[in-house]
Design a binder for these strands. Structure first.
Lengths: 210, 210, 210, 210
DNA sequence: GATGAATGAGTTTTCATTCAT
DNA sequence: TATGAATGAAAACTCATTCAT
């Protein structure tokens, strides 16, 4: 391994360390409440160092979300490409896939939304923005594809596949937010998975032909 | 009308004026981005005056959310008490009711979530907190009641009514968030209503008995 | 009694009411911590009304102190003019006189000092200032007179009477401050009177001839 | 000298610089009148920097007082441990010791009292409070010890040593306050030392046996 | 490359004071 | 005369960000 390569790797490691710290602090305090100093503290680095790896607070936040979206897309692609599944099974698989995403990183939607709600977006460089929007669209398209498959195969009623994907996504987003906000008060209820399962099952029943 | 009464009304009017200004600014800038000065400007008052009507920024924000939740509960009660509707029709009515809430105040969920996600809650006086939680619970209970009615009448499959209410709420929440975030970029798409209709319809189909 | 007279009396009553409220609030919160609104509340008047009776916060504060100083001077004059007392007895009487002042109004020195320490003085109208300084000087002169009497009568050693008065005043001031500050923490110790008695007695012994 | 050591020293130097600026401004304007901005200006730093070294205005003020109390205790201990002094001489030495404290830092009592009178105390972290109370108590105990020595040796009448210490402290406190307040008006009278000397001398005479 | 130190630019919040009624 | 209502002016404090070392 060349020196340059090793350095590159070292750099990525540091980036990851910062992102982990940021994830933690953002979760605890929200975007507005988190301070760069606290993130630095968590990462055992100085605040100034953060700026060597991320242009600014927004950039750090966006990177976090990007990483999460990437996992989402990857997981959905895995579901799409899984063999031996009919459309119905694949839709049911959505519940697991989405829950995986949540498990892997409970923050993902919480933060994705937060990102969008705090107008942080508007201050992001256009490339980053495009990347985020691109990944979101891709995820949705995959979900829509799954529904479309069922429609094409004649097992689902002829609904707008994209709207169904929107619905799934909306349910998921809403449930995550809710779960998280409950966590603040109730002692960590875990109603997400059962409710998500029920929702998906209801949708499957609702669109199944005959 | 007595003098005291007139004064009281005047006072409420002014409170309302501030809340309207706040609603606007919070929508545009988010909680963190909004400044008391900007809200005051919008209300054509001085920042100091705001503090005569609201203890602080958090309090103002919470009041906003309270008002919204009150409308939500009121609208759901209206639906519940509407005569000449069978269970299925009432569930379909949920789409309209929720959309009304959104129309009346697009901020409602956007803000409700925000409120819960930004740890603003933790700094709220307990009474306010109780009020918020109480109203939320009440709204959910009404929705669950509608589903339960259908189950009792034998037209819906025997699912957990509360989980169905959760699902509806989650879809709604998720869609609102999404709609709002889209509004930031795309030129004001209005996909909320059709998607919500579809979701509810799908749910109805999904739980209808044979 | 004429109408004008009655009005005048009414006015004085109101002034007194405000001053009492102010005394209470200043004691509880200190000059900086007290707000005009709180004083108004205590006086069951509106803040604006206070300004009909006192030019501003400083003026109100100064008036309070003036009233206290007047009592001090009056009480010292009483002591000075009391018949059948020799110099030694009169000096001993100082302890009682000063303690009376404190009893009558525990704030007096606390406030007098405060007045002086917070640079409120510098913003006072010169007349008020002159009045305050005049009364202070008069009080000191009376005390010095008492010592001087003893020196003239040959029962006290030939010390500077004015310096002895200063000492008495200083002891008193210091003890009051201390007592008050203790009151903040310890549960209301009352060590003022015994210590004051001891101090005066020690002074008497210290200057007695032979 | 190691790097860490040098840095530590550098830090302390900066703290001291801020404290000196604060001392000056507090003296000129009083606690309420002083602003962080003015202190920063005096220290040739930005206001924000002050907050790197002191948690808030109260903390800065308390630190100032702590430093002063430390000097007081140190000076009294020096007096107590000085060899070749009998009790009477040691009591007389109190005048010098206390005056040294005043000279070294005219603010000490002015501030100590102020600190206690303005409810600044109530907002102080308990540790700081304990430290302040501890040092005060220690100073008093040393003074009482000096009187007790004289009583034990039979040269002083059998008075309560602690009350005598209280008296000395009260005289001192009162005189400082007075001196300072005079300074605001009269052109810098220096009556403190002679009056203090007289007071102590009077006390000595007052408690000497035979 | 890493960081200790510093700060500019805000923001919330407080209050003495005014004034139309 | 009394006051409800409003506010100007200020002050404490915060934090993302920079820069000399």
């Amino acid at each position: 391994m060349g020196i340059a390569e090793r350095k590159e790797r070292e750099k990525r490691r540091r980036r990851a360390r910062i992102m982990n710290a940021a994830k933690k602090v953002f979760t605890d305090k929200g975007f507005g409440g988190a301070t760069m100093e606290e993130i630095a503290l968590e990462a055992e680095l100085s605040p100034a160092t953060l700026y060597l790896y991320f242009k600014n607070k927004n950039d750090l936040y966006a990177s976090l979300n990007l990483k999460m979206l990437e996992f989402l897309v990857w997981r959905l692609e895995e579901l799409r490409d899984q063999e031996g599944l009919d459309a119905e099974g694949r839709v049911r698989g959505l519940a697991d896939a989405l829950y995986d995403v949540y498990q892997n990183d409970p923050l993902i939607l919480f933060n994705v939304f937060h990102l969008q709600s705090t107008h942080v977006l508007t201050e992001l460089p256009p490339e980053t923005l495009d990347e985020i929007n691109g990944l979101s669209a891709r995820a949705l398209r995959i979900m829509a594809g799954i529904f479309q498959q069922g429609i094409d195969e004649g097992v689902f009623a002829d609904r707008a596949a994209i709207a169904l994907a929107d619905t799934v996504w909306a349910v998921f987003t809403g449930l995550v937010l809710w779960e998280e906000s409950k966590r603040l008060f109730d002692s960590g209820k875990d109603f997400l998975k059962p409710t998500l399962d029920l929702a998906i099952e209801t949708i499957v029943q609702g669109i199944k032909k005959g």
